[in-house]
Design a protein around this nucleic acid. Structure first.
Lengths: 231, 231
DNA sequence: GCGCGTGCGATTGTCGACAATACTATTAGA
DNA sequence: TCTAATAGTATTGTCGACAATCGCACGCGC
């Protein structure tokens, strides 16, 4: 009978797709990473294993595995028989972090220019619109982060994306911890990003590079209050 | 008796200093990482937890924690309920790896030029002498790796060094796996490195940058056999 | 002969308990 | 009163065992 053929044998694609359950340590790492990035767990604080395990509803085994991952990312430091601590953001660390971000994002930008910079510029412009319409500083910072994440992802390089993700986590933590210093009174930040996006649309690699360097330099000076001179 | 006073109460400084024992998962990660980099554990192979734990004389708990660290580095991939596998080096991966290495090393080189490039050039020249006097290909590759590790460490950037260390591990693994393709008949490789070191001594940042890009491009073409065109 | 369901073996995932270490508060002595 | 040794407590480090899941081979039915 033809009636049976009318009954779908499988559920719609959208309902079946996301059944790829990631490992528990990975989920734990994601949760704790987010808690650190958002400032819920402040820098310098110790992570008690028993507390966290109870809070997340898992045993200490998987928890420790997830935390080891964050240690490998440099987000936590391990002191033997003492425990794990969230790193603190000194001016030197901020400077180094932005040096690394600059390395990654400049490489990503160069690669984008080798591909389809016009399409990339259009994508980035969308994020900038979100940034421009942000009502509070929190939303603006979120859009800022999104811009740079999209920038690197457009380079389609797994390694650059992975390295950048780690750095972005540190950046977010830093912004939350030093939010007083990150105040950007007017809309200068939006215009800086718009210029970067435009340089992609204009197919001007050298300009993109210069703008990125200046943008990073600005951020460092803003966050460190100019207390660190280059070594 | 005065003889007792002659006995030193404390050991010499050099013997007491390095008592900072690193955590067990960290040591495990180092061992396994080295085994993978040296080719002792070939790409694509599965890491049986029970075997490894017995081999290293530890329990599965710390072992799994150490392996999570390597997973975070991207050296292992985890498939739930299946186990951990060493990544395989496809041409795309090699290309991406060198893209990331290029990003890190170019940034390190730029930073060196902002500091003391002449001293850096001298340090690098020392490594090149070792490379030039290498008898077999293995020693030459080791010196090659040392050159690039020193290059990045001279930038004195913790994050660049950490990211580069991960990439160098992959590079070593790749060279061991594809050693047939990495044959460098004559002494071209030595001269390439010598030119890079010289560009530091000559305080020529632009030349360093160009040489590094060319050097990386050469390596990619050598390892992939020119099978991958840029995307 | 071919496809499918089922049982088996092996490996991973998780948990609780024990041991070791470091920090803290208390108390005795100078 | 201050120093120093000590007992106590809390936390981390490690281990062994149990449960869950997956791949594979055997056997049955069509």
């Amino acid at each position: 009978m033809a009636t049976k053929a009318a009954v779908p044998q499988v559920a719609p694609r959208s309902a079946m797709e996301p059944l790829v359950q990631e490992s528990t340590p990975s989920m734990i790492a994601g949760r704790v990473r987010e808690a650190i990035a958002s400032g819920l767990i402040p820098p310098g604080s110790q992570l008690g294993e028993a507390n966290l395990a109870r809070e997340l509803g898992v045993s200490r085994g998987p928890l420790r595995e997830g935390l080891q991952r964050l240690t490998a990312e440099g987000l936590l430091i391990s002191i033997r028989n003492r425990g794990l601590f969230v790193i603190e953001m000194t001016p030197e660390r901020v400077q180094d972090m932005y040096l690394a971000r600059q390395a990654v994002e400049r490489a990503a930008a160069e690669r984008i220019h080798q591909g389809d910079p016009v399409a990339a510029g259009a994508s980035l412009a969308t994020v900038i619109d979100v940034m421009a319409s942000a009502r509070d500083q929190h939303a603006e910072s979120a859009a800022d982060v999104s811009f740079h994440e999209l920038l690197v992802s457009l380079a389609a390089s797994p390694r650059l994306s992975r390295m950048h993700g780690i750095l972005i986590t540190e950046t977010r933590m830093c912004i939350n911890a030093l939010s007083d210093l990150y105040v950007q009174g007017d809309r200068v930040r939006v215009e800086e990003h718009r210029a970067i996006a435009q340089s992609f649309s204009d197919r001007d690699p050298a300009l993109t590079d210069r703008l990125l360097v200046a943008h990073m330099s600005d951020a460092v000076h803003r966050l460190t209050g100019g207390r660190v001179e280059q070594g």
